[in-house]
Every structure is written in structure tokens, then in C-alpha cells.
Design a binder for these strands. Structure first.
Length: 208
DNA sequence: CTACCGATTGACT
DNA sequence: GTCAATCGGTAGA
């Protein structure tokens, strides 16, 4: 086998059963995992450090709250697929959870860049490592994620997937950022102490 | 068709 | 901390 750069992290995609669980369980379990993106054989990746859960029921901030639409169709599909949408002329990426028809998802809000930092810098137009993927739309820009990946199956290990990683030492729970309804729900989860999370100091104070 | 608006970001005080 | 650019999706005339 050809010699390759040493890989410190396993890159086998997580199985569908990982995603076919309660959305909050999946959200917390995603912290520490490796988000992997390949473009023309070149890999970029990062450790997930910030996520938000969006509930299938009783969550007015969830895109599925007012029913199925063309835009949110992926949320109603099987678990383990991506839901990519645009807002304010940017892209954001979610992971669909729970059985098909239960329209819940986890928004990936920030990663700590691990591989392909130079590619991320080029795509983002900055060399500030902390800012490369701190925020859901910055993350998508850094990994070249757009709506062509809406509905993409994350369990195949092709183009875009999630692999295992070390569980964080601590998790902070806060309210979600930017939502204009259901603001009070404690559904944002951060790797404690990570400098790669978004939000202000106050927004990152524990809410529960 | 037009009008409104958001799970954001970056520039600025 | 404040503020507005940006544009696709959706609702409504």
C-alpha cells in the first residue's frame, strides 16, 4: 500500500443506527465526532464542537413545524442524511435523525479544523484558524458544502460523512442562537472549553 | 407576480 | 455592543 500521511483519527462513517435515535441523544453524541468532506479526492475534516437539536414536535423554530415543503423534504427522509438549506444567502448543514417521517434534525454549528486547513483558509478567505468553521455558514463555506449535498447519505463514506471521535470531557447546554421562536428551549450543546465554538461569552453560559 | 423575512455574517461604534 | 447586506423560500394578491 502506498505511504500516506498518518491518520490519527478513524474515518469510517457512523452507521445509520447512530442517527436513528432521539434527536437530543444524537446531538450530544455528535460532539467530538469527525465531520469529513472530500472534494476530488482531497479531504478536509474537523471535530464537531457545537450543535443544536430541532424537534419534530412542539418546536416552532424547527423548519418542519409548518409541515413538509420542497425546501425541508430531507428532514422527512431517513436518518443519517444531510439537510442543507440556505439562509441570508449562506448555507447551513443539519443531520437528519429519528425514523423516516419524524422530521427532526441536528444543526452542526461549529467544528475545530483538523485536516485540510489550507483548503479551508482558501475557501473562507481568511487564515484565522479560530474563525474558519466557527458558525454554521462559515463551517459550510470551509468544507464547500452547498445545496447539492441536500439529502446526501452520510453513512456511505462518500463526499460528506461523519466518523467516530473522542467523547468530550464536558458538555455545556445553552439556549439556541438566532432563533426567533422557542428561544427558551435548552437545545444547544457545546464542547466545554473549546475555543472553536460560536456565540458570545454570555450566550455560552450554561442555561440549565 | 410582489412582499416579506430568517437556524448569519462581517463591518463598524 | 449595533446594524444592514444578502437571496431563496414561502405566502398572498
Amino acid at each position: 500500500m502506498a505511504r500516506t500521511a498518518p491518520q490519527s483519527t478513524q474515518v469510517t462513517p457512523l452507521a445509520r443506527s447512530f442517527y436513528d435515535r432521539d434527536v437530543v441523544t444524537v446531538a450530544r453524541a455528535l460532539l467530538g465526532k469527525l465531520l469529513v468532506r472530500t472534494v476530488r479526492g482531497r479531504r478536509t475534516s474537523g471535530r464537531i464542537v457545537e450543535v443544536e437539536a430541532y424537534l419534530a414536535e412542539g418546536d416552532s423554530a424547527c423548519h418542519s413545524f409548518r409541515g413538509r415543503r420542497p425546501r425541508n423534504a430531507a428532514m422527512f427522509g431517513p436518518p443519517g442524511c444531510a439537510y442543507v438549506y440556505s439562509i441570508h444567502a449562506r448555507y447551513c448543514m443539519n443531520v437528519v435523525t429519528e425514523p423516516a417521517g419524524v422530521a427532526s434534525a441536528v444543526l452542526i454549528r461549529a467544528i475545530e479544523p483538523i485536516e485540510g486547513v489550507a483548503s479551508m483558509e482558501r475557501r473562507r478567505g481568511t487564515e484565522a484558524r479560530r474563525d474558519l468553521a466557527r458558525g454554521p455558514a462559515r463551517l459550510c463555506a470551509a468544507l464547500a458544502i452547498d445545496r447539492t449535498l441536500d439529502g446526501h447519505d452520510l453513512t456511505c463514506g462518500d463526499s460528506l460523512w461523519i466518523a467516530g471521535g473522542p467523547d468530550p470531557d464536558g458538555v455545556v447546554t445553552t439556549r439556541r442562537i438566532g432563533v426567533t421562536s422557542a428561544k427558551e428551549l435548552p437545545l444547544r450543546f457545546l464542547v466545554a472549553g473549546s475555543r472553536f465554538v460560536s456565540g458570545t461569552r454570555r450566550q455560552n453560559e450554561p442555561a440549565v
